[in-house]
Design a protein around this nucleic acid. Structure first.
Lengths: 222, 222
DNA sequence: CAATGACTTAATGGTTTTATGAAAATTCAC
DNA sequence: GTGAATTTTCATAAAACCATTAAGTCATTG
Protein backbone atom coordinates (compact mmCIF):
# COMPACT_ATOMS: atom_id res chain seq x y z
CA UNK A 1 0.00 0.00 0.00
CA UNK A 2 2.76 2.38 0.93
CA UNK A 3 4.54 4.19 -1.83
CA UNK A 4 8.23 3.82 -2.48
CA UNK A 5 10.52 6.80 -2.75
CA UNK A 6 14.03 6.36 -3.98
CA UNK A 7 16.57 8.92 -2.82
CA UNK A 8 19.67 9.35 -4.93
CA UNK A 9 22.05 11.52 -2.98
CA UNK A 10 25.71 11.31 -2.17
CA UNK A 11 25.61 13.28 1.06
CA UNK A 12 24.61 10.41 3.20
CA UNK A 13 23.59 12.30 6.32
CA UNK A 14 21.28 14.52 4.32
CA UNK A 15 19.74 11.53 2.61
CA UNK A 16 19.33 9.83 5.95
CA UNK A 17 17.37 12.70 7.44
CA UNK A 18 15.19 13.00 4.39
CA UNK A 19 14.52 9.29 4.46
CA UNK A 20 13.37 9.51 8.04
CA UNK A 21 11.01 12.32 7.25
CA UNK A 22 9.54 10.32 4.41
CA UNK A 23 9.15 7.25 6.57
CA UNK A 24 7.44 9.37 9.19
CA UNK A 25 5.00 10.45 6.52
CA UNK A 26 4.18 6.90 5.60
CA UNK A 27 6.43 6.36 2.63
CA UNK A 28 8.96 3.63 2.17
CA UNK A 29 12.31 5.13 1.29
CA UNK A 30 15.48 3.70 -0.06
CA UNK A 31 18.78 5.50 -0.45
CA UNK A 32 21.29 5.09 -3.23
CA UNK A 33 24.59 6.91 -2.99
CA UNK A 34 26.23 5.70 -6.14
CA UNK A 35 24.61 7.09 -9.26
CA UNK A 36 25.62 4.16 -11.40
CA UNK A 37 23.26 1.85 -9.55
CA UNK A 38 20.13 3.91 -9.99
CA UNK A 39 18.85 2.61 -13.30
CA UNK A 40 19.38 -0.97 -12.27
CA UNK A 41 17.54 -0.44 -8.99
CA UNK A 42 14.58 1.21 -10.65
CA UNK A 43 14.30 -1.70 -13.06
CA UNK A 44 14.40 -4.27 -10.30
CA UNK A 45 12.44 -2.65 -7.48
CA UNK A 46 9.17 -0.86 -6.92
CA UNK A 47 9.70 2.88 -7.10
CA UNK A 48 6.88 5.39 -7.21
CA UNK A 49 8.95 8.54 -7.09
CA UNK A 50 12.60 9.38 -7.34
CA UNK A 51 14.51 12.21 -5.70
CA UNK A 52 17.59 12.72 -7.80
CA UNK A 53 20.56 14.82 -6.83
CA UNK A 54 22.02 16.19 -10.03
CA UNK A 55 25.51 16.61 -8.63
CA UNK A 56 26.66 13.11 -8.19
CA UNK A 57 30.16 11.73 -8.20
CA UNK A 58 30.75 9.38 -11.07
CA UNK A 59 27.64 9.69 -13.12
CA UNK A 60 25.84 12.85 -14.19
CA UNK A 61 22.36 13.24 -12.77
CA UNK A 62 20.84 14.46 -15.97
CA UNK A 63 22.20 11.47 -17.84
CA UNK A 64 20.55 9.20 -15.32
CA UNK A 65 17.34 11.11 -15.77
CA UNK A 66 17.42 10.70 -19.53
CA UNK A 67 18.16 7.03 -19.26
CA UNK A 68 15.29 6.51 -16.86
CA UNK A 69 12.98 8.27 -19.23
CA UNK A 70 13.70 5.70 -21.92
CA UNK A 71 11.78 3.07 -20.01
CA UNK A 72 9.68 4.63 -17.24
CA UNK A 73 7.43 7.56 -16.47
CA UNK A 74 7.79 7.66 -12.71
CA UNK A 75 7.95 11.22 -11.38
CA UNK A 76 11.37 12.59 -10.58
CA UNK A 77 12.20 15.41 -8.23
CA UNK A 78 15.56 16.86 -9.19
CA UNK A 79 17.75 18.48 -6.58
CA UNK A 80 20.60 20.79 -7.37
CA UNK A 81 22.81 23.20 -5.51
CA UNK A 82 23.48 25.45 -8.46
CA UNK A 83 20.90 28.07 -9.19
CA UNK A 84 21.82 28.24 -12.85
CA UNK A 85 20.98 24.56 -13.24
CA UNK A 86 17.42 25.42 -12.46
CA UNK A 87 17.03 27.45 -15.60
CA UNK A 88 18.12 24.55 -17.73
CA UNK A 89 15.76 22.26 -15.88
CA UNK A 90 12.85 24.56 -16.39
CA UNK A 91 13.46 24.17 -20.06
CA UNK A 92 12.94 20.47 -19.68
CA UNK A 93 9.74 18.69 -20.28
CA UNK A 94 8.78 18.69 -16.62
CA UNK A 95 5.84 16.36 -16.87
CA UNK A 96 5.08 14.91 -13.53
CA UNK A 97 8.43 16.19 -12.38
CA UNK A 98 9.61 18.84 -10.04
CA UNK A 99 12.87 20.31 -8.89
CA UNK A 100 14.22 21.75 -5.68
CA UNK A 101 17.17 23.94 -4.89
CA UNK A 102 19.65 22.86 -2.26
CA UNK A 103 19.88 23.36 0.59
CA UNK A 104 16.32 22.22 1.00
CA UNK A 105 14.37 21.41 4.09
CA UNK A 106 13.28 17.81 4.44
CA UNK A 107 9.81 19.00 5.29
CA UNK A 108 9.55 20.89 2.05
CA UNK A 109 10.60 17.86 0.09
CA UNK A 110 8.03 15.72 1.82
CA UNK A 111 5.34 18.22 0.93
CA UNK A 112 6.35 18.15 -2.71
CA UNK A 113 6.52 14.39 -2.80
CA UNK A 114 3.07 14.17 -1.32
CA UNK A 115 1.70 16.61 -3.82
CA UNK A 116 3.17 14.88 -6.81
CA UNK A 117 2.06 11.44 -5.73
CA UNK A 118 -1.37 12.64 -4.82
CA UNK A 119 -1.65 14.16 -8.24
CA UNK A 120 -0.56 11.05 -10.04
CA UNK A 121 -2.26 8.39 -7.97
CA UNK A 122 -4.57 9.59 -5.25
CA UNK A 123 -6.24 8.82 -7.40
CA UNK A 124 -8.32 8.02 -10.32
CA UNK A 125 -11.01 7.71 -7.69
CA UNK A 126 -10.79 11.38 -6.93
CA UNK A 127 -11.10 11.87 -10.66
CA UNK A 128 -14.05 14.08 -10.28
CA UNK A 129 -13.33 15.48 -6.87
CA UNK A 130 -17.06 15.33 -6.48
CA UNK A 131 -17.47 11.76 -5.47
CA UNK A 132 -15.01 9.32 -4.00
CA UNK A 133 -15.74 5.82 -2.86
CA UNK A 134 -13.63 3.67 -0.62
CA UNK A 135 -14.61 0.02 -0.66
CA UNK A 136 -12.65 -1.06 2.38
CA UNK A 137 -13.86 1.66 4.68
CA UNK A 138 -17.26 1.82 3.08
CA UNK A 139 -16.82 5.52 3.07
CA UNK A 140 -18.40 7.81 0.53
CA UNK A 141 -17.33 11.40 0.15
CA UNK A 142 -19.37 13.87 -1.80
CA UNK A 143 -17.42 17.05 -2.38
CA UNK A 144 -15.21 16.01 0.47
CA UNK A 145 -18.00 15.55 2.96
CA UNK A 146 -18.86 12.14 4.26
CA UNK A 147 -22.22 10.66 3.46
CA UNK A 148 -23.45 7.68 5.41
CA UNK A 149 -25.15 5.09 3.25
CA UNK A 150 -26.89 1.83 3.97
CA UNK A 151 -25.58 -1.35 2.46
CA UNK A 152 -28.00 -1.38 -0.45
CA UNK A 153 -27.31 2.25 -1.20
CA UNK A 154 -23.59 1.75 -1.01
CA UNK A 155 -23.66 -1.23 -3.34
CA UNK A 156 -25.78 0.66 -5.79
CA UNK A 157 -23.62 3.73 -5.84
CA UNK A 158 -20.45 1.72 -5.92
CA UNK A 159 -21.66 -0.24 -8.92
CA UNK A 160 -22.72 2.90 -10.68
CA UNK A 161 -19.42 4.53 -9.93
CA UNK A 162 -17.51 1.63 -11.43
CA UNK A 163 -19.57 1.79 -14.58
CA UNK A 164 -19.99 5.43 -15.29
CA UNK A 165 -22.28 6.46 -18.10
CA UNK A 166 -23.57 2.97 -18.55
CA UNK A 167 -27.33 2.47 -18.44
CA UNK A 168 -28.69 -0.33 -16.26
CA UNK A 169 -32.14 -1.77 -16.08
CA UNK A 170 -33.69 -2.28 -12.69
CA UNK A 171 -33.31 -6.02 -13.08
CA UNK A 172 -29.59 -5.65 -13.71
CA UNK A 173 -29.19 -3.44 -10.70
CA UNK A 174 -31.03 -5.91 -8.52
CA UNK A 175 -28.77 -8.78 -9.42
CA UNK A 176 -25.80 -6.49 -8.79
CA UNK A 177 -26.98 -5.54 -5.34
CA UNK A 178 -28.13 -8.87 -4.02
CA UNK A 179 -25.83 -11.84 -3.75
CA UNK A 180 -28.74 -14.18 -3.18
CA UNK A 181 -31.21 -14.49 -5.97
CA UNK A 182 -34.01 -12.72 -4.25
CA UNK A 183 -36.68 -11.12 -6.33
CA UNK A 184 -38.07 -7.77 -5.48
CA UNK A 185 -40.32 -5.26 -7.07
CA UNK A 186 -39.01 -2.77 -9.55
CA UNK A 187 -40.12 -0.02 -7.22
CA UNK A 188 -37.57 -1.18 -4.67
CA UNK A 189 -34.78 0.10 -6.84
CA UNK A 190 -36.60 3.35 -7.31
CA UNK A 191 -36.82 3.65 -3.61
CA UNK A 192 -33.12 3.16 -3.05
CA UNK A 193 -32.34 5.55 -5.86
CA UNK A 194 -34.56 8.10 -4.25
CA UNK A 195 -32.78 7.78 -0.92
CA UNK A 196 -29.40 7.91 -2.59
CA UNK A 197 -30.25 11.06 -4.43
CA UNK A 198 -31.61 12.62 -1.29
CA UNK A 199 -28.51 11.85 0.74
CA UNK A 200 -26.19 13.09 -1.97
CA UNK A 201 -28.10 16.24 -2.63
CA UNK A 202 -28.31 16.79 1.06
CA UNK A 203 -24.62 17.58 0.85
CA UNK A 204 -24.75 19.55 -2.35
CA UNK A 205 -27.98 20.17 -4.18
CA UNK A 206 -26.04 20.75 -7.38
CA UNK A 207 -24.84 17.20 -7.65
CA UNK A 208 -27.20 15.23 -9.81
CA UNK A 209 -25.31 12.13 -10.71
CA UNK A 210 -28.00 9.48 -11.03
CA UNK A 211 -30.11 9.98 -14.08
CA UNK A 212 -33.27 8.18 -15.05
CA UNK A 213 -33.53 6.90 -18.57
CA UNK A 214 -37.19 6.76 -19.32
CA UNK A 215 -38.38 3.28 -20.11
CA UNK A 216 -34.93 1.76 -19.60
CA UNK A 217 -33.44 2.30 -16.20
CA UNK A 218 -30.80 4.46 -14.56
CA UNK A 219 -27.32 5.63 -15.29
CA UNK A 220 -24.60 7.36 -13.39
CA UNK A 221 -22.86 10.43 -14.74
CA UNK A 222 -21.27 13.53 -13.32
CA UNK B 1 -8.10 30.09 19.31
CA UNK B 2 -5.32 31.80 17.39
CA UNK B 3 -1.89 30.38 17.66
CA UNK B 4 1.06 32.35 18.92
CA UNK B 5 4.26 32.61 16.96
CA UNK B 6 7.32 34.09 18.57
CA UNK B 7 9.89 35.66 16.25
CA UNK B 8 13.42 35.97 17.55
CA UNK B 9 15.34 38.10 15.11
CA UNK B 10 17.68 41.02 15.49
CA UNK B 11 17.03 42.59 12.12
CA UNK B 12 13.99 44.46 13.22
CA UNK B 13 12.62 45.39 9.81
CA UNK B 14 12.77 41.81 8.63
CA UNK B 15 11.02 40.62 11.75
CA UNK B 16 8.40 43.30 11.30
CA UNK B 17 7.52 42.18 7.80
CA UNK B 18 7.36 38.55 8.81
CA UNK B 19 5.16 39.45 11.75
CA UNK B 20 2.71 41.18 9.46
CA UNK B 21 2.51 38.21 7.15
CA UNK B 22 1.81 35.95 10.07
CA UNK B 23 -0.84 38.25 11.43
CA UNK B 24 -2.41 38.34 8.02
CA UNK B 25 -2.59 34.56 8.12
CA UNK B 26 -4.40 34.54 11.42
CA UNK B 27 -1.54 34.03 13.80
CA UNK B 28 -0.62 36.21 16.74
CA UNK B 29 3.01 37.17 16.50
CA UNK B 30 5.43 38.68 18.94
CA UNK B 31 8.94 39.86 18.20
CA UNK B 32 11.94 39.60 20.44
CA UNK B 33 15.19 41.22 19.38
CA UNK B 34 17.34 40.42 22.34
CA UNK B 35 18.18 36.75 22.59
CA UNK B 36 18.57 36.86 26.33
CA UNK B 37 14.87 37.45 26.83
CA UNK B 38 13.61 34.47 24.82
CA UNK B 39 13.59 31.77 27.45
CA UNK B 40 11.92 34.01 29.97
CA UNK B 41 9.22 34.99 27.46
CA UNK B 42 8.45 31.42 26.48
CA UNK B 43 8.08 30.50 30.13
CA UNK B 44 5.72 33.35 30.84
CA UNK B 45 3.65 33.58 27.66
CA UNK B 46 1.71 31.31 25.35
CA UNK B 47 3.88 30.32 22.40
CA UNK B 48 2.92 27.63 19.89
CA UNK B 49 5.86 27.98 17.56
CA UNK B 50 9.14 29.82 17.59
CA UNK B 51 11.12 31.22 14.70
CA UNK B 52 14.67 31.50 15.92
CA UNK B 53 17.45 33.32 14.21
CA UNK B 54 20.66 31.55 15.04
CA UNK B 55 22.87 34.59 14.54
CA UNK B 56 21.96 36.80 17.43
CA UNK B 57 24.00 39.43 19.16
CA UNK B 58 24.68 38.57 22.74
CA UNK B 59 23.40 35.04 23.03
CA UNK B 60 23.96 32.15 20.68
CA UNK B 61 20.83 30.81 18.98
CA UNK B 62 21.71 27.19 19.43
CA UNK B 63 22.24 27.74 23.14
CA UNK B 64 18.79 29.22 23.39
CA UNK B 65 17.43 26.26 21.49
CA UNK B 66 19.05 23.80 23.86
CA UNK B 67 17.81 25.65 26.89
CA UNK B 68 14.28 25.69 25.52
CA UNK B 69 14.40 21.99 24.95
CA UNK B 70 15.03 21.41 28.63
CA UNK B 71 11.48 22.42 29.45
CA UNK B 72 9.33 22.53 26.33
CA UNK B 73 8.57 20.68 23.11
CA UNK B 74 7.18 23.54 21.08
CA UNK B 75 8.28 23.40 17.46
CA UNK B 76 11.16 25.67 16.49
CA UNK B 77 12.00 26.93 13.03
CA UNK B 78 15.63 27.87 12.93
CA UNK B 79 16.84 30.54 10.57
CA UNK B 80 20.40 31.00 9.55
CA UNK B 81 22.34 32.88 6.93
CA UNK B 82 25.23 30.51 6.84
CA UNK B 83 24.92 27.46 4.68
CA UNK B 84 27.36 25.48 6.74
CA UNK B 85 25.18 25.92 9.79
CA UNK B 86 22.59 23.83 8.02
CA UNK B 87 24.73 20.75 8.15
CA UNK B 88 25.10 21.03 11.87
CA UNK B 89 21.38 21.50 12.22
CA UNK B 90 20.65 18.42 10.21
CA UNK B 91 22.58 16.48 12.77
CA UNK B 92 20.19 17.72 15.42
CA UNK B 93 17.20 15.87 16.65
CA UNK B 94 14.78 17.62 14.37
CA UNK B 95 11.62 16.52 16.04
CA UNK B 96 8.82 18.87 15.24
CA UNK B 97 11.42 21.34 14.01
CA UNK B 98 12.45 22.81 10.74
CA UNK B 99 15.04 25.24 9.50
CA UNK B 100 15.21 27.84 6.80
CA UNK B 101 18.07 29.48 5.07
CA UNK B 102 18.27 33.28 4.94
CA UNK B 103 17.38 35.27 3.05
CA UNK B 104 13.95 33.71 3.17
CA UNK B 105 10.68 34.92 1.80
CA UNK B 106 8.05 35.76 4.42
CA UNK B 107 5.52 33.87 2.37
CA UNK B 108 7.59 30.72 2.51
CA UNK B 109 7.95 31.01 6.24
CA UNK B 110 4.21 31.33 6.66
CA UNK B 111 3.68 28.17 4.67
CA UNK B 112 6.09 26.28 6.85
CA UNK B 113 4.60 27.58 10.03
CA UNK B 114 1.18 26.53 8.89
CA UNK B 115 2.37 23.08 7.96
CA UNK B 116 4.15 22.49 11.22
CA UNK B 117 1.28 23.68 13.33
CA UNK B 118 -1.24 21.74 11.36
CA UNK B 119 0.76 18.61 11.82
CA UNK B 120 1.49 19.00 15.47
CA UNK B 121 -2.04 19.96 16.36
CA UNK B 122 -4.30 17.95 14.11
CA UNK B 123 -2.40 14.79 13.71
CA UNK B 124 -0.75 14.24 17.01
CA UNK B 125 -3.43 15.65 19.18
CA UNK B 126 -6.40 14.18 17.45
CA UNK B 127 -5.16 10.77 16.50
CA UNK B 128 -2.91 9.68 19.28
CA UNK B 129 -3.75 11.83 22.21
CA UNK B 130 -7.16 10.25 22.37
CA UNK B 131 -6.06 6.68 22.15
CA UNK B 132 -2.63 5.19 22.44
CA UNK B 133 -1.81 1.53 22.47
CA UNK B 134 1.35 -0.13 23.61
CA UNK B 135 1.63 -3.63 22.25
CA UNK B 136 4.45 -4.79 24.46
CA UNK B 137 3.03 -3.62 27.74
CA UNK B 138 -0.57 -4.20 26.69
CA UNK B 139 -1.32 -0.76 27.99
CA UNK B 140 -4.11 1.34 26.58
CA UNK B 141 -4.49 5.02 27.27
CA UNK B 142 -7.67 6.87 26.48
CA UNK B 143 -7.17 10.60 26.74
CA UNK B 144 -4.12 9.87 28.81
CA UNK B 145 -5.93 7.73 31.33
CA UNK B 146 -5.21 4.05 31.52
CA UNK B 147 -7.92 1.57 30.70
CA UNK B 148 -7.58 -2.02 31.72
CA UNK B 149 -8.70 -4.45 29.07
CA UNK B 150 -8.98 -8.19 28.92
CA UNK B 151 -6.99 -10.06 26.30
CA UNK B 152 -9.82 -10.35 23.83
CA UNK B 153 -10.69 -6.72 24.20
CA UNK B 154 -7.09 -5.69 23.75
CA UNK B 155 -6.65 -7.76 20.62
CA UNK B 156 -9.80 -6.32 19.17
CA UNK B 157 -8.92 -2.73 19.89
CA UNK B 158 -5.36 -3.22 18.80
CA UNK B 159 -6.43 -4.67 15.48
CA UNK B 160 -8.87 -1.87 14.96
CA UNK B 161 -6.27 0.69 15.83
CA UNK B 162 -3.88 -0.71 13.29
CA UNK B 163 -6.52 -0.61 10.60
CA UNK B 164 -8.34 2.60 11.18
CA UNK B 165 -11.43 3.29 9.13
CA UNK B 166 -11.49 -0.16 7.66
CA UNK B 167 -14.69 -2.14 7.99
CA UNK B 168 -14.45 -5.68 9.29
CA UNK B 169 -17.05 -8.39 9.42
CA UNK B 170 -17.45 -10.33 12.62
CA UNK B 171 -15.90 -13.35 10.96
CA UNK B 172 -12.82 -11.37 10.05
CA UNK B 173 -12.51 -10.04 13.55
CA UNK B 174 -12.76 -13.52 15.00
CA UNK B 175 -9.95 -14.89 12.90
CA UNK B 176 -7.93 -11.84 13.84
CA UNK B 177 -8.47 -12.34 17.53
CA UNK B 178 -8.04 -16.05 17.84
CA UNK B 179 -4.86 -17.83 16.93
CA UNK B 180 -6.56 -21.20 17.09
CA UNK B 181 -9.40 -21.83 14.71
CA UNK B 182 -12.10 -21.83 17.29
CA UNK B 183 -15.59 -21.05 16.19
CA UNK B 184 -17.84 -18.85 18.19
CA UNK B 185 -21.13 -17.11 17.70
CA UNK B 186 -21.33 -13.78 15.98
CA UNK B 187 -22.79 -12.35 19.15
CA UNK B 188 -19.52 -12.99 20.93
CA UNK B 189 -17.93 -10.18 19.01
CA UNK B 190 -20.86 -7.94 19.83
CA UNK B 191 -20.31 -8.73 23.45
CA UNK B 192 -16.67 -7.78 23.42
CA UNK B 193 -17.43 -4.66 21.46
CA UNK B 194 -19.99 -3.76 24.05
CA UNK B 195 -17.49 -4.13 26.86
CA UNK B 196 -14.85 -2.21 24.94
CA UNK B 197 -17.19 0.68 24.33
CA UNK B 198 -18.24 0.71 27.94
CA UNK B 199 -14.71 0.78 29.24
CA UNK B 200 -13.65 3.49 26.84
CA UNK B 201 -16.65 5.65 27.43
CA UNK B 202 -16.17 5.14 31.09
CA UNK B 203 -13.14 7.35 30.73
CA UNK B 204 -14.70 9.85 28.38
CA UNK B 205 -18.27 9.55 27.22
CA UNK B 206 -17.44 11.65 24.17
CA UNK B 207 -15.15 9.08 22.64
CA UNK B 208 -17.12 6.97 20.23
CA UNK B 209 -14.51 5.22 18.19
CA UNK B 210 -16.09 1.88 17.35
CA UNK B 211 -18.85 2.22 14.86
CA UNK B 212 -21.29 -0.43 13.77
CA UNK B 213 -21.91 -0.78 10.09
CA UNK B 214 -25.32 -2.29 9.80
CA UNK B 215 -25.31 -5.60 8.03
CA UNK B 216 -21.55 -5.59 7.61
CA UNK B 217 -19.62 -5.35 10.83
CA UNK B 218 -17.64 -2.80 12.76
CA UNK B 219 -15.07 -0.17 12.06
CA UNK B 220 -12.78 2.00 14.09
CA UNK B 221 -12.57 5.73 13.57
CA UNK B 222 -11.89 8.76 15.69
C1' DC C 1 -54.05 17.93 -25.00
C1' DA C 2 -55.63 13.76 -23.20
C1' DA C 3 -54.39 9.15 -22.14
C1' DT C 4 -51.12 6.01 -20.84
C1' DG C 5 -47.26 4.25 -19.01
C1' DA C 6 -43.11 5.43 -16.31
C1' DC C 7 -40.91 7.67 -12.53
C1' DT C 8 -40.87 9.91 -7.75
C1' DT C 9 -41.93 10.11 -3.25
C1' DA C 10 -43.59 9.44 1.55
C1' DA C 11 -45.53 6.38 4.61
C1' DT C 12 -45.88 1.85 6.61
C1' DG C 13 -45.36 -2.81 8.28
C1' DG C 14 -42.38 -6.34 8.56
C1' DT C 15 -37.78 -8.16 8.69
C1' DT C 16 -33.07 -8.20 9.84
C1' DT C 17 -29.50 -6.64 12.62
C1' DT C 18 -27.53 -4.74 16.77
C1' DA C 19 -27.39 -3.52 21.82
C1' DT C 20 -27.62 -5.03 26.27
C1' DG C 21 -28.02 -7.40 30.61
C1' DA C 22 -27.68 -11.66 32.68
C1' DA C 23 -26.64 -16.40 32.90
C1' DA C 24 -23.83 -20.29 31.69
C1' DA C 25 -19.41 -22.08 30.47
C1' DT C 26 -14.71 -21.82 30.41
C1' DT C 27 -10.14 -20.50 31.79
C1' DC C 28 -6.63 -19.32 34.99
C1' DA C 29 -4.20 -18.70 39.23
C1' DC C 30 -3.55 -20.26 43.50
C1' DG D 1 -10.19 -28.28 43.39
C1' DT D 2 -11.95 -23.61 44.36
C1' DG D 3 -12.95 -19.08 43.30
C1' DA D 4 -12.46 -15.11 40.51
C1' DA D 5 -12.02 -13.39 36.08
C1' DT D 6 -12.94 -13.94 31.51
C1' DT D 7 -15.30 -15.60 27.65
C1' DT D 8 -19.31 -17.19 25.44
C1' DT D 9 -24.08 -17.81 24.88
C1' DC D 10 -28.74 -16.55 25.27
C1' DA D 11 -32.96 -13.83 25.41
C1' DT D 12 -35.10 -9.65 24.77
C1' DA D 13 -35.47 -4.89 23.60
C1' DA D 14 -34.26 -1.42 20.49
C1' DA D 15 -32.81 0.26 16.23
C1' DA D 16 -31.93 0.20 11.35
C1' DC D 17 -33.17 -1.21 7.14
C1' DC D 18 -35.91 -2.74 3.30
C1' DA D 19 -39.81 -3.87 0.22
C1' DT D 20 -44.18 -2.61 -0.78
C1' DT D 21 -47.95 0.26 -1.45
C1' DA D 22 -50.35 4.02 -3.08
C1' DA D 23 -50.73 8.52 -4.53
C1' DG D 24 -48.67 12.10 -7.06
C1' DT D 25 -45.78 13.79 -10.93
C1' DC D 26 -43.73 13.59 -15.34
C1' DA D 27 -42.70 12.01 -20.15
C1' DT D 28 -44.25 10.09 -24.30
C1' DT D 29 -47.44 9.09 -27.87
C1' DG D 30 -51.30 9.52 -30.79
Amino acid sequence: MSQHVLIVEDEESLAQVLGEYLTQSGFISHIIIDGSQVVEWVKQNPVDLLILDLMLPGKNGLDIYRELRTFTDIPVVMATARIDEIDRLIGLELGADDYICKPYSPREVVVRVKNILRRSTDEMKMVDKILSINESTMQVLVKGKEVSLTRAEFRLLSHFHQHKEQVFSREQLMTQIYSDNRVVTDRTIDSHIKNLRRKIQNVDAEVDCIQSIYGVGYKFAL
